[in-house]
Computed example of a mutant assay.
Amino acid sequence: MTEPIFSADEAADVDIDFRSLPKVSLHDHLDGGLRPATIVELAAEVGHELPSTDPEALGRWFRESADSGSLVRYLETFDHTVAVMQTREGLFRVAKEFVEDLADDGVVYGEVRWAPEQHLARGLTLDEAVEAVQAGLDAGVEEVAAGGRPVQVGQLVTAMRHADRGQEIAELALRHRDRGVVGFDIAGAEDGFPPSRFKDAFTYLAEHQFPVTIHAGEAAGVDSIVDALVNGRALRLGHGVRIAEDIQVDFDAGAGDQQEPGQEQSSLAMVTLGRVASWVRVRGIPLECSPSSILQTGAIAPFGEGIGSHPFDLLYQTGFKVTINVDNRLMGGVTLSDEYELLVDTFDYDLDDLLEITLNAAEAAFLPLEEREALVEYITEGFQARES
């Protein structure tokens, strides 16, 4: 189908305290959000060697490694974070601080994803690992609530795509569904490890009405998204930005006087959606977009260079359910507030745009309907209070 997309008449004039806005975080990895100082202290406790024992220098190493353009070096960063998350104490501390950092950034609802199967090297069982993280999350929620900052956090239990433990991890997630686990994910190398590898696990989860989000449309293209929707029964797409490969933009369409019936004249371009893109948009399948992370991993390459070439605005302007996320705060050196500000600076968004995008995330949260409605109301009131 064909839809018009319009260019902004002028840059938005905004003065926003981004950190104070009530926000929703749907795509945030636990092993990508540690504080450098915590890594240094936990590494000393378990005898793990780091590139630096100075927190400031270590934080800089993580950011530079993530920006290096080398996938090998990027993945090396997780070797160090996962290494210090192999004990109950380590998982508890990291999870607790994770919640504190979310609250400091104005997040009122967050889903934290992580792969328990990667945290068994020092003798923890899968269930013990999940329980340790949940204890840390609960402690963090309790502490920030005592300071007058309400926040709600749920676990997304993740299976690694290259491993063969999908069914086992799916059963793990279900065992903890009423004890903090709100959904299931698969992560890791997307290209070459499609969701269909875990087809039976996804069927099992669907039979038990348990929600799924899947990394798709980042390192691989539209076929990966189709696999996530068909075999994975995904309710959300992790990143999903390469759905834009199924969108055709005609920058000359708005220049002529002739229009097809039902089309509107555009000052910028005419956008035609392919079947997959149309399916995702019409059904309102949320996209967990992480602007800075996509630049680091190179998923933006098919569309150009730099944040200005990011397909986020194209997707937003054409009605996709885009959401804003950080992916890995440590490696990206960004907060969710930073990502909001980046998009405002790049695409001239105003407070109404940010509210719409934030409500997309609230409505996509893996929460019961009544809780989602309450979250939407809370966020709307929070934004309106900042307009007055």
Rank of each mutant, 00 (worst) to 15 (best):
R283S: 05
S290W: 15
S278T: 07
S290K: 08
V271P: 01
I285L: 06
D257H: 14
E288Y: 15
E288N: 14
S266C: 06
I247M: 03
L268E: 07
I285K: 05
W279P: 02
F251Q: 01
S266E: 02
S267D: 10
F251H: 12
V249C: 05
L273N: 11
A253G: 13
D250H: 09
P286N: 12
Q259V: 12
R281A: 01
S278P: 08
S278A: 11
P261L: 14
A277T: 04
L268N: 00
L273S: 02
S278M: 11
L268F: 01
P261A: 15
V276S: 07
R275S: 06
E288R: 14
R275I: 11
P291C: 04
A277P: 00
Q263F: 07
V282M: 09
L273D: 01
M270Y: 03
G256Y: 08
V282L: 08
E264L: 12
L268C: 00
T272Y: 00
G262R: 06
P286V: 00
Q248N: 14
T272W: 00
R281G: 02
D257Q: 14
I247N: 04
D257G: 12
L273K: 08
P291E: 11
D257N: 09
V249R: 09
D250G: 02
G274Q: 01
S266T: 05
S267W: 04
I247D: 00
F251T: 11
V249L: 02
Q248E: 10
S290N: 15
Q259N: 12
V271A: 04
G274M: 03
G254C: 00
S290R: 11
G254S: 03
A255Q: 12
P291L: 06
P261H: 10
G254H: 07
Q259D: 04
P261R: 11
P286A: 05
V271F: 03
I247K: 07
F251K: 07
M270L: 10
G284V: 09
Q263I: 04
C289E: 11
Q265S: 07
A269T: 00
F251Y: 12
D252M: 11
A253Y: 03
E288L: 14
L287V: 05
Q258V: 13
R275M: 05
D250A: 09
E260H: 06
R283H: 14
L273G: 06
R281W: 01
C289G: 06
P291V: 12
V271L: 02
V280Y: 02
V280A: 00
R281V: 04
V249G: 09
G256P: 01
Q259T: 10
L273W: 08
V280F: 00
A277E: 02
L287K: 08
S267A: 07
G284N: 12
G274N: 04
S290V: 15
D257S: 15
Q259L: 15
V271C: 06
T272A: 12
S267P: 11
Q265E: 10
S267F: 02
L268H: 01
A255M: 09
V249W: 07
R281C: 00
V276G: 12
